[in-house]
């Protein structure tokens, strides 16, 4: 290979790496929260939002969301309202899924991110499999299960790769 050829080849490779890094640093999902039926935060994971929240703030935000969810049901003009599913803010979207037992899962993602309902249901499945079936897990307490962590990060990663494929 000639020298100029080599250089352009290297340039290409570098460009590819830079492109990939840019894509990966462009987080589609900013953070994930799981709150129990009384509004206590039992799981919080951050996937790269600017200015990470400390523990106290995340607890406050979680319980605030719990109350807002309940109030939105009271204000419904039609019966059988089950609370906010999607909140569209200026810089993010918040998707929320409430299970039948009252546990709420919500993700903060980029505006316009699709298929979040599917991801939330999948996270719920992971929760039932790796948290609820864990004999050492106490109900309504913070989640500290290694298998759940591993599978969750895989799921989120997969979701990101699927987003990259668009």
């Amino acid at each position: 290979m000639t020298e100029s050829g080599l250089r352009s080849h290297r340039g290409d490779a570098w460009l590819q790496v830079a492109f990939r890094q840019r894509l990966f640093s462009m987080a589609a999902i900013y953070s994930l929260y799981i709150i129990n039926k009384s509004g206590g935060l039992i799981y919080y994971k951050d996937y790269g939002s600017a200015g990470r929240m400390d523990t106290n703030d995340s607890l406050r935000v979680a319980s605030l969301w719990h109350s807002m969810h309940a109030i939105s049901q009271q204000l419904s003009p039609v019966e059988h309202c089950s609370g906010i599913e999607l909140l569209q803010a200026d810089t993010f979207d918040l998707h929320c899924y409430q299970s039948l037992t009252g546990t709420k899962f919500f993700v903060v993602c980029e505006p316009g991110t699709q298929h979040m309902e599917g991801l939330l249901k999948f996270i719920y499945e992971l929760y039932t499999d790796y948290v609820l079936k864990n004999p050492f897990y106490e109900m309504e307490m913070p989640i500290r299960c290694e298998l759940f962590d591993i599978n969750l990060s895989q799921a989120v990663q997969k979701d990101r790769v699927a987003l990259l494929g668009r």
């Binding site: 900013y30 953070s31 939002s49 600017a50 200015g51 703030d57 406050r60 935000v61 605030l64 939105s72 049901q73 419904s76 003009p77 039609v78 019966e79 059988h80 309202c81 089950s82 609370g83 906010i84 599913e85 999607l86 909140l87 569209q88 803010a89 200026d90 810089t91 993010f92 903060v108």
Partner: peptide, 29 residues
């Protein structure tokens, strides 16, 4: 707001037009 680092405390009063606001939310009904 995940895009800005300086957000202050939760519930701190903000000037109109400052801080991330929202434009809609949706429930099942």
């Amino acid at each position: 707001d995940p895009t800005s680092a300086e957000k202050g405390n939760l519930g701190v009063p903000q000037l109109l037009g400052h801080g991330c606001s929202f434009h809609s939310f949706r429930t099942n009904t």
